[in-house]
Design a binder for these strands. Structure first.
Length: 376
DNA sequence: ACCCGCGTATAGCCGGGTAG
DNA sequence: CTACCCGGCTATACGCGGGT
């Protein structure tokens, strides 16, 4: 489906009626006003429809706002999600539904703006721009790559500039925290695996463009409510996910599937002392990767006395090759005790694990050198 | 069909240490 | 002194995967 051509045809269709009153009649006949009103929308323009839901929620992070840049607060967050005519980033794509979420006290306000037909896009965008004014930080799922560009593009194509100042994209947080433990990091998988949300009767994303086209072409409004619902659920999940990530970062929650190694490393990189605690907890929970990262952190900090017991534990309980190598390096180069270095390195060969050729040759080289040192 | 941020792997550089 | 080697850090290249 070439949506560019399609959009052009829609424009011509309305343009064909020259008389003002005639045009209006035609529009009113084509836009299913009563259907949209029945869905809780109100008319906000010739083609623009708006509805709002207030959802009572608890547990909004009021103080611990680790994700929010600058001096903004969570009152200035706007959660947003678009339903579009396709995935491709080309100019022919546009969006016909935007969901916005705002936090207000203990409530979540979800606003949805629907474009009843393409010729109304300019007024639709102007209306959305007004609604977006209160939001300073945009929260999305993959919005940095998808939604924000489409949004900007549509404003641009209509001769209006719009820039999303600050953005928080939760996709990257989901990857960081659950890439190892979930089959994938689609919003759906995160909902099911972490948030405990299982959508019933959800519209698969790929069906959405066709549903909208079929509505435009044949006036088929039947499946539209499910699209509105899908968009609403996306906003709700976005908010829940945002709260969960804030909770994890402030140490209030730590779902069992969370990758403590990745989180700990990220925190350490951000010079955050809680990174050490996260890695400690991960290692205590049996994650060797967390122990390894913690030991390397101690090594970088020159805290050998803290690193050494970790390496020994990693060798004894997890048969960690990297820990063996670290112990061998330590004794060969730092303590100048090649016999101790050899003692540890030899364990790797005793284990008789399958090794990649590269790693194997590296280990052999190290052993050769130690043998030379020992015999001289 | 598209974009883009992120994680991972690899190469290269530098400083320190050592053998000859 | 020189030539080399090792380890650690940084820069760059690459590929993945999510949105409708």
């Amino acid at each position: 489906m070439n949506s560019d051509l399609f959009a052009l045809k829609r424009r011509l269709k309305y343009a064909a009626f020259t008389g003002k009153s005639q045009e209006k009649k035609r529009i009113e006949a084509k836009v299913p006003v009563s259907f949209l009103l029945s869905q809780g929308f109100e008319k906000a323009g010739e083609f623009t429809f708006f509805r709002r839901k207030v959802i009572e929620e608890h547990g909004f992070p009021q103080s611990a706002a680790r994700l929010i840049p600058g001096t903004y607060t969570c009152r200035e967050l706007v959660f947003f999600d678009l339903e579009t005519t396709g995935l491709s980033g080309g100019a022919g794509n546009y969006f016909f539904l935007i969901g916005l979420g705002f936090l207000e006290g203990s409530s979540l306000i979800v606003e949805q703006v629907f474009l009843a037909d393409y010729p109304g896009e300019a007024e639709y965008l102007d209306y959305i721009r007004e609604r977006l004014k209160r939001g300073k930080v945009f929260v999305s799922y993959n919005g940095k790559s998808f939604d924000s560009h489409l949004l900007r593009m549509r404003f641009q194509m209509n001769g209006r500039e719009y820039k999303l100042a600050e953005q928080i994209d939760l996709l990257y947080w989901a990857r960081r925290l659950w890439k190892k433990t979930l089959p994938d990091c689609s919003l759906k998988s995160v909902e099911a695996g972490v948030l405990g949300i299982n959508r019933e009767d959800d519209v698969p994303g790929y069906e959405i463009p066709d549903i909208y086209f079929s509505y435009l072409r044949a006036g088929d409004t039947g499946p539209l409510p499910r699209v509105f619902e899908h968009n609403l659920q996306d906003i709700l999940s976005l908010v829940k996910l945002y709260i969960l990530v804030e909770d994890i970062l402030s140490g209030h929650q730590f779902p069992p599937v969370t990758d403590s190694r990745a989180l700990g490393c990220w925190l350490l990189k951000e010079c955050d002392a809680t990174g050490v605690n996260v890695l400690k907890r991960g290692f205590a929970g049996g994650d060797a990767g967390s122990g390894r990262e913690l030991s390397l952190y101690y090594k970088r900090a020159g805290l050998w006395l803290l690193a050494l017991p970790l390496w020994r534990e990693l060798v004894e309980n997890y048969r960690s090759i990297s820990a063996v190598v670290e112990l061998a390096k330590y004794y060969e180069h730092r303590e100048k005790e090649p016999e101790k270095a050899y003692y540890w390195l030899d364990k790797v060969f005793a284990w008789d694990l399958p090794l990649s050729p590269l790693l194997r040759s590296e280990l052999l080289k190290r052993r050769e050198r130690l043998i030379r040192k020992l015999s001289s």
